[in-house]
Amino acid sequence: MRALQTEALQEDVLMLEKEDDGQLYAVFSLYVIENELVEITQLINRLNSTTLGYQRLTANTTKQLKDLRAEMQQLETYDTLQVVKRQQDNKQLKRELDQCRNRLYPITQPTPPQGNCPHGEFRNITGVRMHTEGEYPGSYMYGAWGRDPKPEAGKENWYWLVMLTSSNIYANYVRRYSSLSALIVGVSTPGNVEIHTSNPTTNTVQGPNAVLYGEALYYNCYNQDSVCRFNLTTKAVTTLQLPKDTRYNSKGNFCHLDECYPYTDLDLATDESGVWVIYTSKHDFGNLVLSKVEEGEPLTLGQTWRTSVYKQGVTNTFMACGVLYATRYVNKDVEEIFYKFDTTTEVERFDISVFINKMSPNIHSLNYSPVDQMLHAYCDSHMVSYKVLFS
């Protein structure tokens, strides 16, 4: 715009130079030029004022941005060093208080109906409470151990152990210990209770996922898609045929990205309400299936639930208060309880995010004991236990 006015002024001056009106209009023309010069001067002044304003605005904005960035960095440092630290300290303190409360004030509850937990809602587990390799350190990589939730009188403090002594797949006896101390030092007063003298053979143990309940061992029968129940008193074996298309003989294993755990097709579990079996089938496209095992003669399969979690994406399962929990491998030091299925509400969740600190990379069996709310893990010949914390 300033260029146009300057150009117009030049044209007016040229026109004035050419005028020959006997000085009749010369004065008027000069007034016109003077007015144009005033307008140009005013325009230049406004332009300069605007430019200076923008410069000041830019400078102020830049300074404000720098100040804001410095404040944000200060707040971030404060949050990292103070707020987050305080949250972590509070969580740690709460966990320690929960552990102290559970250790000092154990409460013995009556056996509840399925899905009705007397302890409250599952919240977390502690760090390792007990760790031992028992009598045979490093000898038997696969196995299971724990307590009988329904023991005979006088055997309330006994523990049991099943080690896969043939090819890391098969076992033909269960070993008993009269106390936890006896298990740790490796003194088995009752010794072995044999299912059969041969290993393996019909109705002996196949795979690591066995449990003891009511003085009877429940496990995957050798070379069958069936649950076996071995009565430790009478030595009788009862079998329970699972539904057609149930995967067995290492075709429906627990797995993680690096490997699968062989012959983990059937996982037996105990909780406050009894015995459960977790498995999968071709009909269910490899997803976990959960069934209640009903006591009595003959052994029968009770209610069944189907889940949407893929079995080969799971490393282990356990039951607590009628709720199925599943774990997955995070790394060699950590396992995550990531999933649960409530048999009462039939609601499943994939966001549990409870972590298990491991003593060895692989957890080959995981059993919950409702007697003392402990979680017993068998990991590469290590026997490890954790306390389950409820709200």
Rank of each mutant, 00 (worst) to 15 (best):
G252F: 03
G207L: 13
Y329H: 08
Q241D: 13
I337P: 00
E133A: 15
R69D: 12
I44C: 02
A216F: 05
A236K: 15
L389Q: 08
L75R: 15
G286E: 09
T189L: 11
E17W: 06
L389C: 04
F285S: 13
H196E: 15
D148R: 02
R56P: 01
N220M: 14
R328H: 09
Q99C: 05
E215A: 15
K282F: 12
V185G: 06
Q99P: 03
I363T: 04
E336R: 15
E71G: 06
L212Y: 03
C228S: 07
R229D: 00
I40M: 12
E259L: 14
P208Y: 03
I184L: 08
Q206S: 07
P137G: 08
R46K: 12
Y248C: 08
R147G: 03
C228P: 02
Y378H: 06
L366S: 01
G154F: 06
V388T: 09
L242T: 05
V237Y: 04
L301Y: 00
I107T: 03
G120W: 07
P370E: 00
L14W: 08
E96D: 11
G134S: 08
E272T: 01
G127I: 11
Q114P: 05
V323I: 14
Q303E: 15
T50I: 04
Y218H: 03
I337G: 08
S360T: 04
G286A: 12
Y248T: 05
V334Y: 12
K292S: 03
N287I: 07
Q114Y: 10
D79F: 15
E34M: 14
N157G: 01
L266Q: 04
D98M: 14
T345D: 07
S198V: 08
V334L: 13
L75F: 10
Y339L: 11
C228V: 04
T264C: 05
V347N: 14
S198K: 11
Q303D: 14
N231H: 09
N116I: 12
Y339I: 09
W158R: 06
E259M: 13
G53C: 05
E346Q: 15
G143Q: 10
L164H: 02
H131N: 11
F338T: 06
H283Q: 13
Q87C: 10
S291T: 05
G115R: 14
K150W: 06
V371N: 11
V388F: 02
E297Y: 08
Q92W: 15
T204G: 06
A70I: 09
L183K: 06
V309Q: 09
D267M: 13
Y136C: 12
L104N: 07
T304I: 11
A171W: 01
G143P: 00
V388P: 01
I184N: 05
T51H: 08
Q109E: 15
S385W: 00
M141T: 04
E156T: 00
I363D: 04
N116D: 13
E36V: 08
T280F: 06
S188F: 02
E297F: 07
T58K: 05
A377H: 00
L24P: 03
F350H: 11
Y222R: 13
T343Y: 05
T239H: 02
K358I: 01
P243S: 09
A377N: 04
E11S: 12
G154E: 07
G322P: 00
K155F: 00
V237K: 10
N231V: 06
R328V: 02
D12V: 05
V84G: 07
I352C: 14
F285D: 14
E133S: 12
D67K: 12
S166P: 01
T58N: 00
W276F: 01
P243G: 05
K311Y: 03
V314Y: 05
R175T: 01
V388W: 01
